[in-house]
Design a protein around this nucleic acid. Structure first.
Lengths: 335, 335
DNA sequence: CATCGCCTAGCAAACGTTTCCGATTATGCA
DNA sequence: TGCATAATCGGAAACGTTTGCTAGGCGATG
């Protein structure tokens, strides 16, 4: 029902191929006819059917984004960066939420591949069986992951310097004079988290007077951190500083401290990871490791589209973005 | 380069039309040949090209979502609901961030229409000129808005009961014995906000002993609320309760209270709107009006696809979802 | 003046499906 | 056994573009 290129052609008395050329590059068509065609197209309110175009060009001008949950503010930031990068190359972003469920991930993958997206950005493939990972790696469209997956060098990767961030946190606590230090984090299989842990622990152990921190693993969320903190403080009441694996877990620590009538930073210093918006709003404003979330999404899509634009398949590309210590009010110096 | 329906047809020794039928409804094709085709398709790892399919069926199996910013947790919730609803009808969601900028909104619209999406969900058209709104209303694909736009009965609409929510907040404060009440909100043009304000103010004025609240308009964000609160308390130090237009503004109020050494709820009762995740995490846990964000996104896409599936164009459909008072710890009874 | 080449624009194939229509074969019933 | 009817499948058009190829016209050059 909508107006097609044929209508424009008929109305301007030229062939549809001329319309196509006039409206696209405009090369090889007389300036006057070009103007005519353009004016007719505008008058008829012609909108080229990008589906038909995609069929012949083989490009869909859209990229897929598979995250575990867009409600996670981290992924919302990434998504915004990705969407903006896509837009600047005239692409759209199709959003998929996997909840880290393997079946849903594969289902969305299937759907995106059927739509012939130009590339796919996903946060992780670690929920998938090796066989499925292999299948994805050979699916034909570029894939960029949001964590360094040591398992598969097959994928491109954009990640923050998680290890460096962990080191930063450790050094900050060390500098402040802390010696009774703990680290509260999520499942140890989680690649990004284990990197943070490694950077943190190694830095503490390499200190002039080495300290070995308590490391507790639990649910990677607010309540997980809250219960973990209670366990920690029951067993090691002398703890003076905690490094939480991300800001939301840090909020759980704050709550646990509140539960126990402990002051932050008075009784307990706390440092988070991510620098989500609410970390500056919460009381006390949270000292944390800033992760360039927006930039990660942006960079990932840039890489995606660069690879997609290359006819000769290129090797996967990896990029690590720097992190930064955001000093706010949740840490204090120990005498 | 990927395997097409022709490959499957050749490999199984049948016509492409038979392959198509076998793989789709399966009606009118012998059970044996159907099995054969299916097995061949699986063996070749055949993925139907949804672009080509879309060209002939006229359906793209994707819907557009235009929000101001996905990083706004409200929209993240809506987006998740929308994505889930879309998925359950085998559709994908393409995400666009407009920053409420008219040009970007129209640009994304254009792009979505060219992609022939089955429908578009957008948070508001109030940034657009009437002429542009008209153009959208007649663009041919169903559009659902996330606020009651009195201006245009042309669009379908899914919104929370903003007015009712405002009334709920007012009644709660009244019940608690408050009489010196203020309302801190964003720009008065914002439809949803003005609805909240109306419900709030009217309920207060209809009280047995009517109270007229202070209503302050400012920037619709954290800092806006913070400065507004300071202004308010400078001018009306006897204020005992504040209704913030949304939770983020409520957080601004919390910060301002902190700035002044005021306790919530000790010195000041506070009630928000939205019930975003952090409102239960912040200290004190925020009493707020719960808005069914996920359900709104879900319902909107349902309506979208229902209208899209109807050959005979239906009248726009509107739906208002109920809100709910979440009583937490930021309000106290006045003696 | 003839030839060459360039500019312009039309023709048609191609992209990968779905679907209508018709032909062939199988089935049921008398 | 014969005929009507149903089941099965192939052929081909169609969806709306892009793009390679071709032909005509015209200016320039020799």
């Amino acid at each position: 029902m909508p107006v097609t290129i044929k209508d424009v052609a008929r109305e301007s008395g030229v062939n549809i191929s001329t319309v196509s050329r006039a409206l696209n590059n405009g090369y090889g068509v007389n300036a006057q006819t070009r103007e005519l065609v353009v004016s007719v197209a505008r008058r008829l309110n012609y909108r080229p059917n990008s589906v038909a175009r995609g069929l012949v060009t083989g490009r869909s001008h859209s990229v897929g984004l598979i995250v575990s949950d867009i409600r996670n503010p981290f992924f919302a930031d990434v998504a915004r960066g990705a969407a903006d990068a896509a837009r600047s190359e005239n692409c759209d972003l199709v959003l998929c939420n996997s909840d880290l469920d393997a079946a849903r991930q594969m289902g969305y993958m299937q759907s995106l591949l059927e739509k012939r997206v130009d590339g796919i950005l996903m946060n992780s493939v670690s929920a998938l069986r090796p066989e499925e990972q292999k299948q994805l790696a050979e699916c034909g469209v570029p894939i960029v992951l949001l964590n360094r997956s040591e398992s598969s060098r097959a994928f491109s990767t954009v990640a923050a310097d998680n290890e460096g961030g962990g080191a930063l946190a450790a050094q900050h606590l060390l500098d402040l004079g802390h010696r009774n230090i703990a680290h509260i984090t999520g499942p140890s299989q989680h690649g990004n988290l284990s990197d943070r842990t490694r950077g943190f622990v190694q830095t503490l152990m390499k200190a002039p007077v080495p300290v070995v921190p308590q490391v507790l693993h639990g649910a990677f969320d607010f309540e997980g951190a809250r219960t973990l903190t209670h366990q920690l403080l029951d067993r090691h009441p002398k703890t003076t500083a905690i490094f939480a694996a991300n800001d939301v877990m840090a909020f759980g620590v704050v709550r646990a401290a509140l539960d126990r009538g402990l002051k932050i930073p008075g009784d307990l210093s706390l440092i988070g990871f991510d620098n989500i918006e609410f970390s500056s709003i919460i009381q006390p404003p949270l000292t944390t490791i800033h992760q360039p979330k927006y930039e990660m999404g942006h960079a990932a899509v840039e890489i995606l589209l660069r690879i997609a634009g290359d006819k000769n398949k290129r090797a996967p590309e990896s990029r690590i973005l720097g992190v930064e210590l955001m000093e706010r009010d949740s840490c204090r110096r120990i005498l």
